[in-house]
Simulated scan of single mutants.
Amino acid sequence: MITIGLTGWSDHETIYSSTGKHKLEDYAGHFPMVEVDTSYYAIPSPQTTEKWVEQTPEEFSFVVKAFQAMTKHKEWQQYYDSETEMYRRFMDAIAPMSERGRLKAILFQFPPYFGCTKENVTYLRATREKMGDLPLAIEFRNKTWYTESNTPQTLALLKDLGFIHTVVDEPQVGNGSVPIVLKATNEEMTLIRLHGRNSAGWMKANSPEWREVRTLYRYNEEEINYWAENIRYLQKQTKEIIVIFNNNSGGDAADNAKQLQKALDISYEGLAPMQMNLFDI
């Protein structure tokens, strides 16, 4: 099973109805899954996530990004009175999705300075303990996890903890990025996130214009076919592959996702009805 979607539902002008007032509903008419990235910046309320569930078909699912203090980008003390409260708030937020069978995975994307150290291995083990048996996908942004000597141990650790390996396509610039590692660590699911290959933009993570340039990239036909082959290869290792296009800066994600869907000859049932304007013919 191959499930293709995008990061967020607010930056994809080519798939909205003429009014553009119901972006999530419009999105769900094209793709069966979405990555929620707003949860990285602020944990949503259960009322909000319940609304998202109600606005989408029963077959629609969510990958939810872990809050930034859960992935060491920030300190939890900046937001909550205790770490326990932070995790409780997050668990409450995902409950409407999880209880309805609409949660595919929680994505823990770690920062470039989260390297392969004993301390961070301990943190990964503690994360699994805190999150119980929920489906957790791990994405690294530090190359030390995938050195020649560390790669087998990294994959073994993920497998041992039941983590879903996140395979990434991103610019290869220093230690703040990781190579493509086509290995599954969870027999149920593997995540693929396609960030584009804009090296110059990727280096501007902390600049004022980062949203406009960081993932400004459009995959060409050869690159789409390359990933179609990679996905076919990974299908031999895992039951479901979640593919998320994150090249949003220039609005290219939706078109590239549909290109990949065509290359893999995939169609989806149970999508939302297409929203039509009264005067559309």
Score class of each variant (00 low, 15 high):
F163R: 06
G196M: 00
L191F: 10
G196W: 00
N175A: 12
N186C: 05
M203G: 04
V181K: 01
H195Q: 12
V213Q: 05
N206C: 03
E170M: 15
R193A: 05
V181R: 06
S199H: 07
P179V: 15
E188K: 15
G196F: 00
A200V: 08
K204M: 06
V178I: 14
E170N: 14
E170T: 15
W210M: 03
E170C: 15
R197Q: 08
R214T: 12
L194A: 13
P171Q: 14
W210P: 05
S199V: 13
I164W: 08
L194E: 01
T166N: 12
E170A: 15
G174R: 08
T166R: 13
D169Y: 15
R197P: 10
F163C: 02
S177P: 00
F163I: 03
L182H: 02
S177G: 08
T190C: 11
E170H: 14
P179N: 14
V167F: 04
S207A: 07
Q172S: 09
V167G: 07
R193E: 00
R211G: 15
R197W: 02
E209M: 01
V168D: 05
L191C: 08
H195F: 14
T190D: 06
S177C: 09
K183N: 03
R193W: 01
V213G: 11
F163L: 06
I164R: 14
I180A: 13
Q172Y: 04
V178C: 13
E212K: 01
D169C: 15
W210D: 05
H165F: 10
N198F: 01
I180D: 07
T215L: 08
L191Y: 12
N175V: 09
N186F: 02
I192P: 00
V173C: 07
E188M: 10
K183G: 02
F163M: 06
N175H: 06
A184T: 04
A205C: 02
Q172R: 11
V178D: 07
W202K: 08
R211Q: 13
L182C: 07
V181A: 08
S177K: 11
G196P: 00
R211M: 12
N186Q: 04
N175G: 10
W202H: 06
V168L: 09
L194K: 14
R193M: 03
E209S: 05
R211E: 14
N198E: 08
M203T: 10
A205K: 05
R193Q: 02
E188H: 15
V213W: 02
M189F: 10
S199N: 09
L194G: 12
P208D: 00
G174W: 03
